[in-house]
């Protein structure tokens, strides 16, 4: 259940911003989660509900922005879409790939009052 501790981290970020910016309630939050971040979205939603009980983020709507996996193929000299870290290039079949997207795991924005 690593999503549980992920949510603790998210709550920490929210509470830090609440203190700095003086908001009392979070209505919604947007998370960017990359394909290679190793996060199970359903588990994340469940954990978020549990972790935010009796906090300023209780009842906040959780929006997930999926970031697809992309890599730079050195053979093809272009960006290609991949599903797993060790996938071959869909065009040339080679493995000379550098991951360029999909490792993100960020709190993007909040709707607060």
């Amino acid at each position: 259940m690593h999503e549980m501790s992920l949510c603790e981290g998210i709550l920490g970020i929210i509470e830090e911003h609440a203190q700095n910016q003086g908001f009392k309630k979070v209505n919604a939050l947007w998370l960017e989660i990359g394909a290679f971040a190793g996060v199970e979205i359903e588990a994340l939603r469940f954990s978020f509900e549990v972790i935010t009980k009796n906090t300023i983020a209780e009842q906040a709507r959780l929006h997930i922005i999926d970031i697809p996996g992309t890599a730079w193929c050195m053979q093809c000299s272009k960006t290609v879409a991949i599903k797993r870290r060790f996938d071959a290039c869909p065009h040339c079949g080679g493995y000379q790939l550098q991951i360029t997207g999909g490792e993100e795991m960020r709190v993007k924005e909040l709707e607060v009052e």
């Binding site: 992920l6 981290g9 998210i10 970020i13 911003h17 910016q21 908001f23 209505n27 919604a28 947007w30 929006h63 993100e104 795991m105 960020r106 709190v107 993007k108 924005e109 909040l110 709707e111 607060v112 009052e113």
Partner: peptide, 20 residues
């Protein structure tokens, strides 16, 4: 992200913070 403008006091806060 809301379709209709309302009278709500809510506001958006850009966080852009990596969880790590």
């Amino acid at each position: 992200h809301a379709h209709a403008p309302g009278l709500s006091q809510s506001r958006m806060v850009q966080i852009e913070t990596d969880i790590l």
